[in-house]
Amino acid sequence: MRLRGRCVSVAALLACLAVMSACSAEPERPSLKAAAAQLVADGEKLVASRELTAAGTVTVTERADQDGELGCLKGQVQRFFRAQGDLAGSPSAHSAGNSAGLMLSALRNLGYDKIMDSLDIRDENLSVTLAQNPKTGIIFLVAVRRSPEPNIMIVGKTNCYERSE
């Protein structure tokens, strides 16, 4: 009887450890192709978001269609999504911080976490925010400035991957 109780306890403990290790394991990193596709999809959702259109309009200038090596170790590549545009109406009618905050809200709605913003270095003419998707590692930088044009700059990037992926 006592041995059966111990076996059940050990089995329960092992099951708990297995569940805990599965929950604490980092999610599997997507391939470069999958990360680039997600980067473009999230970038296009940001560009079309009501938060961005409330601040201004942007045009996509790069859709993660080529490998970039800048910022990666030798033999590694990453992909970029870039867009830029202008604030709606007069730039003096917009707060750079509020406009960048609107776009950060749109990224949060897409599952991104804020990793930095310019609250500590507040400047009414320039605001910068960074957000990262914890599942994919994709990072978006949004910069909004009152002048000169372009007023809105968005750069999204994947992690670095080995060139063969």
Rank of each mutant, 00 (worst) to 15 (best):
A88F: 01
Q38V: 14
P150A: 08
A55R: 01
V40C: 02
G101S: 14
E149K: 14
S92V: 11
I152H: 12
D67E: 15
A131N: 04
Q132D: 01
S105I: 01
S49C: 04
Y161C: 12
P150R: 09
D123I: 05
A143R: 15
E149M: 05
I152T: 04
L70W: 09
N151S: 08
M103R: 07
H94M: 00
I139H: 02
R63D: 03
Y112C: 00
L119R: 15
R82E: 12
Y112P: 00
L104C: 11
L32C: 02
D65L: 05
S90A: 15
G68H: 14
L46F: 12
Q66N: 11
T61A: 07
N98R: 14
F81N: 06
R63S: 14
I121P: 01
S105K: 08
R108A: 05
R145D: 06
L87N: 09
L110I: 00
A54G: 04
L119E: 14
L87V: 06
E149N: 04
L126I: 12
A93H: 08
N159L: 13
A93W: 13
L110G: 03
D117A: 12
E62Y: 01
A36Q: 03
G43R: 09
Q78P: 02
R82N: 10
E165C: 04
K33T: 14
L141W: 06
I115N: 02
S95P: 06
G97A: 11
K157V: 02
I121Q: 11
E44Y: 00
V77N: 09
A41K: 14
H94Y: 02
K135C: 00
D120F: 10
G71H: 10
E69G: 13
G156M: 08
L104A: 15
E124W: 06
S164A: 15
D86Q: 12
L70M: 13
A36P: 03
D67Q: 13
D86I: 02
G43A: 08
E51K: 11
E44V: 03
D117P: 12
Q78R: 15
A83H: 08
M103T: 09
T158D: 07
G137L: 10
N159M: 11
C72M: 05
N133P: 03
P148I: 12
A100N: 03
V128L: 15
L110Y: 06
D86Y: 04
A41E: 15
L32N: 02
R163D: 13
I154K: 07
R63F: 00
D117C: 12
G137H: 07
L119K: 14
T61R: 07
S49V: 03
A100T: 12
S164D: 13
R82L: 10
G97R: 10
N98P: 00
D67L: 13
V60C: 09
K45P: 00
N98I: 10
L87Y: 07
A106P: 01
R146C: 06
T61S: 10
A88W: 00
G156D: 08
Q76D: 14
Q84A: 10
K135Q: 13
I139A: 08
